[in-house]
Nucleic acid binder design. Structure first.
Lengths: 349, 349
DNA sequence: TTGTAGGCGTTATCAC
DNA sequence: GTGATAACGCCTACAA
């Protein structure tokens, strides 16, 4: 049982050639309905399953959509939420194109050799998560682009490059968040941002500045703090915030985890919730609505971003646009819009 | 540039046969140091990269470790935390065995045809996440086992089968949690469990019962509630709990999300934190320590479980145990131990 | 220590 | 419509 059933056996039993079996199973070329049925029957009966491995080899296509995961030490810098959403979106799209997802974890120190991934024929195209502005990284991607490889960067923008990128509009997301705080009457808004190797961080800062400007509020760099997107870094930042509590009436954090870290820190310092500054986080992760008080946050359509990124790498089944083949990928940066979710943490009456 | 460099070219330029090139690059067979160097040089210079696709084909091994993800609608029944931890563990182990991770998403309704995965040669072995006790599922896995396929079920136990399984000791985990509540003076402990298609749920119930018995506390089935591991279901259960508040002094939930849902529900009903029953959750996800009050929880070593599961499917590099080849997999169920993390939510003074 | 040659299971291009 | 038959790029005895 469970033995390997070869295409040859099917061909023999059906009284046709192997080529015909192939044609039937791939629904390619003209086939007499009669033989089609016969072959299908035999194949079914014998339990023949074509080898994807051999097929891909013959086509010299791996059949894989690679997903490069950033290296994050056991403490999850990025929220798990973030990734599982994106992955689901990607996987969903890939699946109905018959592509499989190959997960690629970056090694701790080592820089990723994207080009090799393709030359090894491990992937036909790939999506890069958690990219950052580092020299080696940019060079590797530039090379990839030169080689005409289809790839898409998610959630990061490389300034000055024209990579295929899918991102959310964090400038607008942050602007909306901060404007909301201002509308609530806040004027001294602390901003706990992430490291600026992530374009996400610099974009958020832009949005923050725009909101202030729109409201005619002067920018005070003393209000800018830097964390690393972890809860711990929020906890640490809470020390600074606690100190300036009478000079701060709101905190905008670049993600929910840091926001919650700050809240936790203030709480541990004995500050009553009623005396909390107004809070807005970012990502609208699960934790936001479970927080006390429920945390206002900027929702990012991670799932949809995943779908979009995948679909940019998948040859359109309807109209074949060979243009993609040449350019490797649309050289377009697409921004999905975010949505501000208002909860108790930012409401001042 | 970026053109395909074939092994042939390397062979020619190095003045050796293709076989020798192979031997050098695979560090197999005896090679004169001199030619080794020469070949390596040429390969390097030409930028030759062997095709994994062709290699796997020739070896008739996919080189992939499949990971089957459960279908979870956009509302994440399982915590994302859970998966990203396990995936990291698996990925880590797989990587240093030169295996790549192939992610397989279940389709919504359709039952998974595990056997085909192997026959298509998409994977050499696979790890099944989020399995449940359903007829089709069990049959599919039994077949896999008959066929001698190496696979490992994570986080679920199939009663009466002898699959290779990696799990945590949830009976003991729950017992410890409930015993702790009892030590805190609680006697009427509500238990919000998950659906019993998951062995996790039934095991937790066992642990709950054992703890009661050890303490000589009578079991009251009225105290057992069923959710579906989502926050929402916790929220719903809070209605019942709120009603019986003077007959309940503690709540043990089968995961953190439900515990937090209950807390949220009670809070929305205007119950002051001081009047909360004692709480213990399960999983020790990030949310537990961010909760208010910080939630006691049972820590599950998801990452280590991932590593363990992967290592069971990876041929030992040291001593080759062909036994694995025959049995497909150690027929052993391994249980890792959990750890009760005590936080404010369960402390009664 | 190295070369030769057959085979892996498809796809795809020809003829018929 | 269908059947031969080259590729595809590598691995692996087996020979030398």
């Amino acid at each position: 049982m469970g033995n390997i059933v070869s295409r040859k056996e099917v061909a023999e039993l059906a009284g046709v050639s192997e080529a015909t079996v192939s044609r039937v199973l791939n629904a390619t070329g003209p086939i007499k309905e009669d033989t089609r049925k016969r072959v299908l029957d035999v194949a079914n009966q014998l339990g023949y399953v074509p080898s994807a491995l051999a097929r891909n080899f013959a086509r010299s296509k791996s059949g894989h959509l690679g997903v490069v995961m950033p290296y994050v030490p056991k403490a999850h810098l990025f929220s798990a939420y973030f990734f599982s959403e994106m992955l689901s979106g990607i996987g969903n799209k890939a699946r109905d194109s018959g592509l499989d997802l190959l997960l690629l974890f970056r090694k701790p120190g080592e820089r990723m050799d994207y080009s090799s991934l393709f030359r090894q024929q491990k992937v036909d195209s790939c999506i890069i998560l958690g990219a950052r502005d580092e020299h080696d990284e940019v060079e590797a991607l530039k090379r990839l682009q030169q080689e005409g490889r289809p790839f898409c960067v998610m959630n990061h923008h490389f300034e000055g490059q024209s990579f295929c990128e899918v991102d959310a509009d964090h400038v607008e997301g942050s602007r909306a968040a901060v404007s909301h705080l201002i509308e609530q009457g806040c004027k001294r808004i602390a901003f706990l941002n992430g490291p600026d190797i992530y374009s996400n961080s610099t974009e958020r800062l832009k949005g923050y500045l725009i909101a202030l400007q729109e409201a005619g509020i002067e920018y005070d760099h003393e209000l800018i703090l830097e964390g690393n997107y972890s809860r711990r870094s929020g906890l640490e930042a809470s020390a600074t915030i606690a100190d300036k509590l009478d000079d701060i009436d709101a905190v905008f954090a670049a993600n929910d985890r840091m926001a919650l870290g700050v809240m936790q820190g203030l709480r541990e310092r004995g500050l009553a919730v009623e005396r909390f500054p107004a809070f807005v986080g970012y990502d609208d992760s699960d934790a936001a609505e479970m927080a006390v008080p429920p945390l206002s946050s900027v929702r990012v359509p991670f799932y949809e971003m995943g779908e979009l990124a995948a679909s940019k790498l998948i040859p359109d089944s309807q109209d074949l646009t060979p243009a993609l083949e040449l350019t490797g990928c649309d050289l377009i940066r697409e921004l999905l819009s975010t949505e501000l979710i208002i909860r108790a943490s930012s409401i001042r009456q």
